[in-house]
């Protein structure tokens, strides 16, 4: 754990670019002072980007996102000396986070499918893009929506097609007040269903 820093030292670190901080991390080696520099610089990078790293880690769902973010930061720490080329730290960081998030999603998916055996030829071409995963995640949600009463389904579909409540009500043949109530109940039911289904 880093010791408390003086205000002037904090300010000094604040003024450094990402790439300069990275150089300090990369220099972190055996000497005690160097290792302290590395940890201080790495803490500053986390302070700058942790909010965004956590958000990015959640792009395929919030379940497990914190683990993804944590693993990503540890990988940054262990890989930065050999695998960062000194240019555009942010780009490198968020590619790594995305890579972790995709791997975590695919692993969780396989566990759900109980596909424990590994077939080298047919599984895991690794080409799952963010968009492909986004589309895969639709299915359980569709199942939850299908379980809603008809009126609620209609309102949900209309809302997801970006109709405002008045237009959605007209589309579904009900009053705006009824539409609001139906939407409220639908949200409540969908939350419960998606939680049950582990979406």
């Amino acid at each position: 754990m880093l010791a408390p820093m003086s205000e002037s030292s904090k300010s000094s670190l604040n003024e450094l670019t990402d790439e300069t901080l990275v150089e300090l991390v990369q220099r972190g080696g055996a000497p005690a002072k160097a290792s302290f520099q590395a940890q201080a610089a790495f803490a500053k990078l986390r302070e700058r980007y942790n909010e965004q790293v956590v958000a990015s880690a959640a792009q395929f769902g919030k379940t497990g996102a914190e683990d993804v973010a944590q693993e990503a930061w540890i990988k940054v720490w262990t890989k930065i000396a050999d695998h960062f080329d000194g240019r555009n730290f942010r780009g490198w960081l968020f590619r790594l986070v995305k890579h972790e998030a995709i791997n975590a999603y695919r692993l969780a998916q396989r566990k759900r499918e109980q596909s424990i055996s590994l077939d080298f030829e047919s599984k895991g071409d690794g080409s799952a893009s963010s968009l492909a995963i986004l589309l895969e995640r639709k299915e359980p949600l569709e199942l939850c929506i299908a379980k809603l009463p008809e009126r609620q389904q209609c309102i949900v579909r209309a809302t997801l097609q970006q109709m405002k409540i008045a237009a959605a009500a007209e589309h579904c043949g009900i009053t705006a007040a009824q539409a609001s109530v139906a939407k409220h109940h639908a949200i409540k039911s969908l939350r419960a269903c998606t939680t049950r289904e582990g979406v």
Partner: peptide, 10 residues
């Protein structure tokens, strides 16, 4: 700690 290495690039 990350392996001691010459910083890459720059």
């Amino acid at each position: 700690l990350p392996p001691v290495a010459e910083p890459v690039g720059n």
